[in-house]
């Protein structure tokens, strides 16, 4: 397989393992320690327990924050998928204005979040919009729109133009072509974009802090808790979020990586 001599292969493998352990093992610390009790800064390894999870379930602040996060996430996904898809459909195949639009759509995603957040905050104040969950949803949508737009546009561009022509040629109306040909071919890109949008919204912190009213989303809540001190149920929370995020990433990859419909059906 490898053209390298054996000692250097072993050396490379060792380095790779070391880097992987150093980089990724911190991620597993909260998961492992979420099953043990920490007292006075020492972990009691003797008795695994689910008590942190029980404590988490009783932490109403955290649960409220989690609910807020989910509400914001779902609203953001709906708004960004609809508007991102419409933008992509409108600008697909259109030369004029597309590069300017892309620049504008990508700006909030590429700018430091603190700048985006401040700009939005000033904007909301100017137009007299109270800070609330609505402003958070708007802020998140502006932030994640680029991802959905790009994902859908890429799919549109990889779709053969003759599919649409064939649909018209066979007698379909524009409406029928959209619902029966274009949308089904975009749907997996839209689902993939939605999952990415949700994941981004889920852990967005900086913009949220700036534009939220009285309610906190989970990352904002966590951030506030960390300043006050560390409670063991945070381990449980981090462990849960980590698993959830991994699940989302796996799902997104499944929808976005081109697949052969063939292999599943046979």
């Amino acid at each position: 397989m490898s053209a390298l001599p054996r000692p250097s292969t072993i050396f490379l493998a060792a380095i790779t393992t070391l880097v992987a352990v150093l980089l990724y093992s911190p991620l597993f610390v909260p998961i492992v320690s979420s099953f043990f009790i920490i007292s006075h800064g020492n972990v009691d390894w003797s008795s695994p327990t689910l008590s942190t999870y029980v404590a988490l379930a009783g932490n109403h602040d955290i649960l409220a924050a989690l609910r807020t996060t989910l509400i914001v996430g779902v609203c953001t996904v709906v708004l960004s998928v609809i508007s991102g898809t419409l933008l992509a459909l409108y600008y697909h195949g259109r030369r004029s204005g597309r590069s300017i639009l892309q620049f504008i759509v990508f700006l909030p995603f590429l700018m430091p979040p603190i700048i985006s957040g401040l700009a939005l905050l000033i904007f909301f104040r100017e137009i007299g919009l109270e800070r609330s969950l609505l402003t958070v949803v708007i802020g998140h949508t502006v932030f994640v729109l680029a991802i959905v737009y790009r994902t859908v546009l890429m799919r549109l561009q990889s779709m053969s133009r003759t599919l649409v022509e064939a649909s018209y040629d066979l007698g379909a109306s524009g409406w029928q072509t959209f619902w029966r040909i274009i949308l089904p071919n975009l749907s997996s890109a839209m689902v993939g974009g939605a999952i990415l949008a949700f994941a981004l919204s889920f852990d967005e912190t900086m913009i949220t802090i700036l534009v939220t009213g009285t309610q906190s989303t989970l990352p904002v809540r966590l951030w506030a808790m960390m300043r006050l001190g560390f409670s063991p149920d945070i381990n449980a929370l981090v462990a849960l979020i980590l698993m959830f995020t991994v699940l989302l990433c796996v799902l997104a990859a499944r929808f976005l990586i081109p697949k052969q419909m063939a292999t599943e059906r046979n």
């Binding site: 064939a166 649909s167 071919n185």
Partner: peptide, 11 residues
Amino acid sequence: TVFQDYALFPH
């Protein structure tokens, strides 16, 4: 029309 790339609907 029968298109050069067939243009069959993949879904």
